[in-house]
């Protein structure tokens, strides 16, 4: 009773989070695991080579890589990424894809309000339309 009284008369110790009123100022921790994203630079370029290691390491098949082989002007056959499909609805946020990607092309995004009305919206293509790979990444 004494303890309750103490808190009752010192409202300064109230710790309730005012979500969603504080949406504008709410900042998640920098390592927060909201979703898997593929960062692109200002030229719409990413680092993904389409090697498929993340797909292999994902425990529940949340990642599908669709890649094509093209011939470079120098005559080399290389694989480029067509679509990096990410099923957010199946992801368990284990982080293995991000950890094992050899070219560090994946990262954690901070978005956490994932509720949608249509579950097909949870299947995302991580490489943006028209994007290409940053030069020099093998």
């Amino acid at each position: 009773m004494g303890v309750t009284g103490k808190y009752f008369f010192s409202p300064g110790q109230i710790v309730t989070e005012q979500y969603p009123e504080n949406r504008k100022t709410l900042k998640m921790a920098e390592r927060f695991k909201g979703e898997v994203i593929m960062p692109h630079d200002e030229n719409n370029q990413h680092r993904c080579t389409g090697c498929g290691i993340c797909e292999l390491n994902c425990p529940n098949g949340s990642i599908e890589i669709i890649s094509t082989r093209i011939e470079t002007p120098e005559g080399k056959k290389v694989r480029i990424i067509d679509k990096h499909i990410y099923h957010l609805s199946m992801c368990t946020f284990c982080g293995l894809c991000i950890k094992t990607c050899p070219s560090d092309s994946l990262a954690w995004g901070q978005e956490f309000e994932h509720a949608v009305f249509d579950r097909s919206k949870l299947t995302k293509v991580l490489n943006q339309p028209g994007s290409s790979i940053i030069k020099g990444i093998e």
Binding site: R31, F32, K33
Partner: peptide, 30 residues
């Protein structure tokens, strides 16, 4: 209320509050 303090520490270091998957065979994720 007090558990929240530990969860905040967890969130800062491992990115999540309940299911962390932070240890890996051989060490830690980061």
């Amino acid at each position: 209320r007090d558990r929240e303090h530990i969860l905040d520490i967890f969130e800062e270091s491992f990115g999540s509050r309940l299911l962390h998957s932070y240890y890996t065979p051989g060490g830690l994720m980061q």
